[in-house]
Simulated scan of single mutants.
Amino acid sequence: MDIVTFLPFIVLIGAMFLMTRSAKKKQQAAAKMRNEMQPGTGVRTIGGMYAVVKEVNDDTATLEVAPGVHAIYAKNAIGAVLDDEEYNRIVHGAEQDLKSDTPVVPDDASSLTQDGEPAASDDAPVDLGKKDAGAETDTDAEKAVEADADAPKKDEDAPKKTDGEADAK
């Protein structure tokens, strides 16, 4: 037998080994995170509910899901243990420290112009609904609307049908 024959099998076995190894590491990290839970820390369940840990047992954890409301969850149902800052930001809407160096995006465009005044524009407002801005002027559009209003309505000219009449002739 030649080594070229066994090469695809060797590559396949190696890929399977690497995939199972990374999955096993993720499982071990999740188990370690769940075992290090302390009462008073904020958690997110795998269902997306945020709660505070009140008591930790071997296989279960008692979570306070609302003030005075306690529920018992399996440790495997804890998706993430959150640090205090992140938990307060998500649950209570606490703002982050405003002293950070990250730029603040303004709510309106007035701060993007000089002196807070809107930029002067020589052009007329652009109608984005038109396909070709130069093809039709406002007067042409008004004339078209008037012509449509003067034209007789086809539905009004046709005799009304009753329930027993059919379209076929």
Rank of each mutant, 00 (worst) to 15 (best):
N88Q: 09
R89S: 09
M49H: 04
R89D: 00
G93D: 04
A94G: 00
A71M: 15
G93A: 15
K54V: 02
T62M: 11
A66P: 03
E86V: 11
T60Y: 12
A61G: 05
K75N: 03
V91G: 06
Q96D: 13
K54S: 03
K99E: 09
E85F: 07
L63D: 10
S100N: 09
V52I: 05
G93N: 04
N76S: 12
A71P: 00
A51Y: 14
K99V: 14
I90Y: 09
I90D: 02
G79K: 10
D97V: 13
D83L: 02
D84L: 13
N88Y: 06
D97N: 14
D83C: 01
Q96G: 15
M49V: 12
E85G: 01
D59W: 01
V81C: 12
L63W: 07
A77L: 14
P67L: 05
V81Q: 02
E85T: 09
L98S: 12
V81T: 03
V69C: 05
V53N: 02
T60P: 14
T62P: 10
K99R: 13
L98E: 14
I72V: 12
N88D: 14
A61C: 12
T102I: 03
V65T: 13
I90C: 08
K54P: 00
K75V: 00
G79W: 02
T60N: 15
V91Y: 04
A74T: 10
E55F: 06
K75E: 01
H70E: 14
D59N: 14
V52H: 00
V69E: 05
E86T: 11
K54R: 11
Y50V: 05
T60I: 02
D59I: 09
E95K: 07
Y87L: 13
V91I: 10
R89K: 07
V53Q: 01
N88V: 01
D83H: 07
Y50Q: 08
